[in-house]
Amino acid sequence: MSDLDPARTALLIVDLQNDFLDPAGAYGRAGQSSPEIAALPARVKPVADALRARGGWIVSTQFTLVPAKGGEPLISPHLRRLRPFLRKGDFQPGAWGHQLVEHLQPADLVVEKVAYSAFYQTRLEWLLRKAGVETLIVAGIVTNGGVASTLRDAHVRDLHTILLTDGCAAFSDHAHEATVTALSTISETATCAEMAARLA
């Protein structure tokens, strides 16, 4: 951490979107909420503010349901089984529900994602290379889904990663804790308070 260059560092915010977190969003309407997830924006914000002040990058990856004919979203079969409540307009590009929660805006770079990993069939790697980013501070949801998949894909691309252990969450405490333990074998870890203090 002592040689961390903030200008070459990005806070990668995975899927902290209105449709996931806001009571009026897709998951909120369906009663799919979690206090641990709801607490994330306030916890992550000091890290974002500290990194912005040091010239670093804020990158938001946003889960996306691409509208097809008639506006009906293209949904993978496994996701349709898990989340049958998803409907037309949810996670639609440009819509309010698709956006990064206001508490963490603005992001310097925004990447639409269609799968767990933010690197899968996206321009994320290209953007990070062009921006000169070498280190990713990773936060968001869910720990055992988008966060884990994205962090592992960053690792195989030789990007240095720091997982914010209390800056990500899952719908199960057990899943969160087990995933943090597993990821700590390939990534540095820090709490949000520790990371904000080090950046300051």
Rank of each mutant, 00 (worst) to 15 (best):
R81Y: 13
R81W: 13
L82V: 11
L82D: 10
L82S: 13
L82Q: 14
L82K: 15
L82N: 11
R83Y: 13
P84S: 05
P84K: 01
P84I: 09
P84V: 09
F85K: 04
L86Y: 01
L86G: 04
L86C: 07
L86M: 08
L86V: 04
R87V: 05
R87H: 14
R87G: 06
K88R: 15
K88G: 10
G89N: 05
G89M: 04
D90I: 05
D90N: 06
F91I: 02
F91L: 07
Q92A: 13
Q92P: 07
Q92S: 13
Q92D: 11
Q92M: 10
P93M: 02
P93C: 00
P93G: 04
P93F: 07
P93K: 01
P93Q: 01
P93A: 04
G94F: 00
G94I: 03
A95Y: 08
A95P: 02
A95H: 05
A95F: 11
A95M: 06
W96D: 09
G97N: 08
G97K: 11
G97Y: 02
G97A: 05
H98V: 11
Q99A: 12
L100F: 08
L100I: 07
V101N: 02
V101M: 01
E102L: 10
E102M: 09
E102D: 14
H103R: 13
H103F: 02
H103E: 14
H103T: 15
H103K: 14
L104W: 04
Q105M: 08
Q105C: 05
Q105T: 09
P106G: 03
P106D: 00
P106T: 04
P106F: 01
A107D: 03
A107T: 05
D108V: 01
L109P: 03
L109T: 14
L109C: 03
V110T: 10
V110E: 10
V111Q: 06
V111P: 05
E112S: 13
E112G: 10
K113L: 09
K113V: 00
K113Y: 03
K113A: 04
V114E: 15
V114M: 15
V114I: 15
A115G: 12
A115S: 15
Y116E: 14
Y116G: 14
Y116H: 12
Y116F: 11
S117E: 00
S117G: 06
A118D: 02
A118Y: 03
F119Q: 07
F119D: 06
Y120I: 08
Y120D: 04
Y120P: 09
Q121M: 14
Q121I: 10
T122Q: 08
R123S: 13
R123P: 09
L124P: 00
E125I: 08
E125S: 07
W126Q: 14
W126S: 12
W126T: 13
